[in-house]
């Protein structure tokens, strides 16, 4: 394809040569956020096991326990939080909200709905729970066995948040595969890998 008129100026070609790969990389990272799932901790992780036990209180004995790990700065977590405070919650389930970061409104609303709100920091979450991403749902049976550790939805930011359905399936002793984890990296190391340019 020869140009019918004079060759394009060099600076234009050079600029475009830089522009195109940069844009490609940026878009690739953006794409990755809704194509790739975030890592979730191992069910057998002793630290995680231990952390679960510590959140169970006296009055929760004999109850299923739902632990919602949400990240105040995460769009997906905010979505889940909104859902939690506005949906009908199942009976006889001890529901905890581990809120990473500051969001007073979210904490207040959740507490009003009967959630036990546990405030922590990204570092705390990583250290205590070995968790690096949110939102994350943890379901624990009355015998403190971790029955579910995974995402809320099939796809990223899907409207269909399936925590109640998963719980009821588990209560009927059906096994449920973990849903992929879509959301935000909470730990700094994960953030660096997923979003090195701070684009999200």
């Amino acid at each position: 394809m020869d140009a019918p008129f004079s060759k394009s100026p060099a600076w234009v070609r050079i600029s475009l040569g830089i522009w195109a790969p940069m844009l490609l990389v940026v878009c690739a990272f953006l794409l990755s956020s809704h194509l790739l799932t975030l890592p979730s901790p191992e069910v057998e992780d002793p630290a995680l096991q231990a952390a679960v036990v510590t959140v169970r209180k006296q009055e929760d004995t004999g109850k299923w326990m739902a632990i919602h790990v949400l990240y105040a700065d995460c769009k997906c977590s905010q979505g889940v939080a909104k859902y939690l405070v506005s949906s009908e919650r199942p009976e006889g389930v001890a529901e905890k909200l581990i809120l990473v970061g500051e969001d007073a409104a979210m904490a207040e609303q959740a507490a009003a709905m009967g959630f036990e709100v546990i405030q922590t920091t990204p570092e705390g979450l990583s250290e205590d729970w070995h968790m690096q991403a949110a939102p994350l749902l943890v379901l624990v049976d009355p015998a403190n066995q971790l029955q579910y550790l995974g995402g809320y939805t099939d796809r990223k930011q899907a409207a269909d948040i399936r925590d109640v359905a998963i719980l009821s399936s588990l209560q009927q002793t059906k096994s449920v595969p973990a849903l992929p984890l879509f959301g935000c990296a909470v730990s700094q190391s994960l953030q660096r890998a997923v979003d090195p340019f701070g684009l999200r």
């Binding site: 990389v25 690739a28 990272f29 794409l31 194509l35 790739l36 799932t37 992929p180 997923v194």
Partner: peptide, 17 residues
């Protein structure tokens, strides 16, 4: 290229492809 780049840019040790 966008789709393929992901696999180059993000470590497979961390992500479940």
């Amino acid at each position: 290229t966008h789709h393929l780049l992901i696999y180059f840019l993000l470590p497979s040790s961390v992500f479940n492809y």
